[in-house]
Amino acid sequence: MGHNRGEDKKKEPVLTVEELSVSFSMYRRGLKKENLEVLHKLSLSVQAGEILAVAGSSGSGKSILAHAILGILPGNACMEGRMLYQGKFFDAKEKAKLRGKEIAFIPQSVDYLDPLMRIGKQVTGIRGTRERQRELFRKYGLDEDAEKKYPYELSGGMARRVLIASALMNEAQLIVADEPTPGLDLGMAREALKDFRELADQGCAVLLITHDLDLAVRVADRVAVFYAGTVVETAPSGDFLAGRDALRHPYSKALWDALPQHEFKPVSGTQPYAGSLPEGCLFQDRCAQRSGLCGGYIPMRSLRGGEVRCIHAK
C-alpha cells in the first residue's frame, strides 16, 4: 500500500554504491597479517520514497555494508569503490558530517547505546527536543517509565523501538536499518516494518538490512539478495510473492524454497568463507546449473525488470 508514492518526484537515487569492496587486515597465526575481502564489487542504489531490503545470510557482510555507508568501519578495514549521496561524491568527511542528521542509523543491538545514560535523555540527544522525543515514544508504545530506564533494563522489543525512535529524532533523508526485527514478535515486527513504510512514503530512502526475507518482502519495494559479500540479484518485491519462477538467481530461488511457509527445503552446502572464495560466481559450488562458464567474471545484468549476477538466468 502506498508503494512508490515518491514516483512524482524525479527518480534520482539518494544513495548509489558502485563496485564497493571492503577488506580487513586480520591476524592469523602469531604476528602474521592477512587481507580478507568481505565485500566484493557490490553495487546498489536507493531512491527517495523507496525501501530497499538487503536480504542475505548471517555472516555475508550485510552489517559491514551498513558500517561502510556510515563510515564507521573499524581501523583495520580498507575500502574501494565509489559512493554517491544525492548525486555527490560521498567521502569519510561527508559521512561524518551527515551521520546522525540526514543519514540515520538503526543499529543491530542496544550495545550501541550509552549504558550509563537514561533512555529519554539519550534519544533526545544534542539536537532533538523533549516534545519530539515524547511524541515518538508515544507513537512506538513506549511509556513515560521507559524514558527513565537505562539500556540494560529494556526488553529486546523495547530496545529496538528505542533505537528506531532515536534514529527518527532528526529529519532523516536516508535511513540505514541493520536487522531491526529479530527479538520482536510477529506483530511488533510488522509494526516496525510498517513504520519504515511510512517513513519511505514521506520521502525517505530506507535501506533495510535483514535476514528476515519473508517480512522484508512485505514492506520493501525492491529486494537486493546478498550472498557471500555481494549482491547477486535485485528484484521488485512482487517477484518474491509471485513465486520462485519470477526470481532470477538460483540463490534467490533457494531462499524461496527454504522458507518454512513454502518447501522448507534447504540447498546443501554453506556460504564460502571470505578467505577462500571461488573464482567467478560465488554460488557455483551449490548450484545445480553450474557450467564451465561460471568460473569467469560474472557482471550484473538487467533481466525482467531487475538485475542479476548469473549467466544462466533467463
Partner: peptide, 14 residues
C-alpha cells in the same frame, strides 16, 4: 534459528 538466514534455518532444522 531466529538469528539465522532461511537456508541455514532449514538446513539446521532438517
Amino acid at each position: 534459528s531466529t538469528m539465522l538466514d532461511v537456508i541455514t534455518q532449514a538446513q539446521i532444522w532438517q
